[in-house]
Design a protein around this nucleic acid. Structure first.
Lengths: 342, 342
DNA sequence: CTGAAAGCGCTTACAG
DNA sequence: CTGAAAGCGCTTACAG
């Protein structure tokens, strides 16, 4: 006999399809007694709405924009590629993704891009945020227009974004420190920190978590002030080189942002690759090679494909006013050593 | 004007809906010239089949069985719980999951359970396999009847299963060794290995990877023969206790299977918790507490929710003869230190 | 080899 | 407050 349908409900409750629908979707304007009759039928028949039929009938479409700073940062490049792949895969599910590329480390350009989106008929926006007041305002502006917003990779709390899709960056920093502390056990010295920009909340939080654990649990290791390389390998190489020359007792490097190639070059030039313990972020061509040859001790990652898919699921759920399982949507911190790179 | 539909295709190609459908779904029995006309229309109109409409019209249902050994193993208990949750969530998507619980470490019971499934109208089966010849045969029997089979958590290659859903256990073992080697750097000694059963391929592979890396990269650490605790905390405690008493130079323990509570108890009783470096598998109430208080150094995990969802996606794709993205379906090895437990 | 018509299980105007 | 009817975009017998 198959599963119960709305027709079965209507017959069992002695009402029309329209009324069944009103009750099922809590549209109101139905007598309490009628509601009860329908709900009784739902329980008795074990009714469950068929998702495909509902989607088809509703003709709902989801238009989502992904705002991503793109430049030389390999991670953001692969994030963009994943969104593009996803866009193709979702076109047959009434989900249409567009990508808005903005210049990196340029808060003003980001704000302009977000403001421009206000005039578009969008269901939701995912944005790799910087944590500036004007950015928070621009996010708030979208949210105020009823557009669901999630921050991606780097958060901007208090902006009106509905959710943050990305790893817990403080935890990542703490993990990096914990690995560093255990890997260089028994040795004292300094640790250099190379970041992209402290205006990116993800970088700031990683540094915070890192310093916190280093100070409290591995006092024999002293963190140097973070240098900001703005994702440039050249800047990273120069800046780290200066630190290495100035402090011969550097035993570790925490590479928080992009520019791993520069970190590696600075170490290689001084014959320090493999001798200094390097913990870096994101698996890229260069970081993977460095892991394989022992120049990097560990790499912390986030999976851009997971992040893109999670952002889409959440934005669609927000648009439907449906709940989503925050547990399922948690983005894991992947830790790679030489022995478990995929 | 909206997206192109089959009606648009039919009109553009000058054929009927039925013919459009035959071409789109490669059902054959269509003249080459007609096929071409339709395909031209598909390209010109940028047609993409609407997934919801196709699902609704096809009336396809997926009946999937999950065969899981259940007993005291907390990981398998939470896997079962995840499958149950998923079953509820998927009922409105024409996917019906059933759970077949079998006694653990009992190859014969597993084979019987699999054989019984042959008489049921199933679309697919996910099974936590043991790597026995009779189990492989039983899996082959299902596959021969056209039922898609995936192995879950522990693989049985050469059985006819279409895919394995779980972590790379050799890589997990190598990772454990790598962490152990770095964490106890500079000290020589023995490492005890506590497993569930070497008949479980996942356990055997973890041991293999672990010993491989220990031998080649950390020769100052010697692995003791693995003890098999059959997921029993009591057996694990006794067996590890004997090893600890016999070998005062044990500096590390690799806990491959369940029974972490027993491992902990054996160490505590001897005042060795925190002094011996323990790497264990799976985040449970006990292992989490041990990580927090420093008794365990690291925990390697697999996410049972991810595994259940991946198994369903793959079994549905197999049933549809559709491709699936093996990269997306790769199950990550999660590494938890005290600083990144969720 | 091809087509006309009905149907999948919902939702949506529209009318009352 | 309630209902009859049409429609969403596919697929499926059935007929020719």
């Amino acid at each position: 006999m198959g599963r119960a349908t709305v027709h079965d409900l209507a017959r069992a409750a002695g009402v029309s399809l329209a009324t069944v629908d009103r009750v099922l979707n809590r549209r109101g304007g139905v007598r309490a007694a009628t509601i009860e009759k329908v709900e009784l039928a739902v329980d008795r028949l074990g009714y469950r709405r068929d998702a495909a039929a509902a989607t088809l009938a509703k003709q709902r479409e989801y238009r989502l924009a992904f705002v991503i700073p793109t430049g030389v940062n390999s991670f953001l490049v692969s994030l963009t590629a994943e969104v593009r792949k996803l866009a193709d895969a979702l076109r047959n599910q009434r989900v249409f993704l567009s990508i808005v590329e903005v210049p990196p480390f340029d808060g003003e350009a980001l704000v302009q891009a977000l403001d421009r989106l206000q005039s578009q008929p969008l269901t939701g926006v995912a944005v790799v945020a910087t944590d500036h007041a004007p950015v928070r305002l621009a996010v708030g502006g979208l949210a105020a227009r009823g557009v669901g917003v999630v921050t991606l990779v780097s958060d901007a709390p208090g902006s009106g974004r509905a959710h943050y899709v990305g790893i817990d960056n403080s935890a990542a920093g703490r993990t990096a420190a914990s690995l560093m502390g255990r890997f260089v056990r028994g040795i004292s010295g300094r640790v250099a920190i190379v970041a992209g920009s402290m205006l990116q909340r993800d970088h700031a939080e990683r540094r915070f978590g890192f310093e916190q654990v280093l100070r409290t649990e591995y006092p024999q290791l002293t963190a140097l002030p973070a240098v900001e390389a703005l994702d440039s390998a050249a800047v990273a190489e120069t800046a780290l080189g200066i630190e290495l020359d100035r402090h011969p007792d550097i035993v570790g490097v925490y590479s928080i942002g992009a520019g791993n190639r520069g970190v590696l070059a600075a170490l290689r030039k001084r014959g320090l690759a493999g001798a200094v313990c390097v913990i870096a972020h994101e698996l890229t061509e260069h970081s993977r090679a460095a892991l394989a040859d022992g120049s990097f001790a560990a790499i912390l990652c986030q999976d851009p494909g997971h992040e893109a898919r999670s952002a889409v699921r959440i934005l669609c759920a927000l648009a439907d006013g449906a709940p989503f399982d925050a547990g399922h949507e948690r983005i894991h911190i992947d830790i790679y050593l030489r022995d478990n790179v995929p």
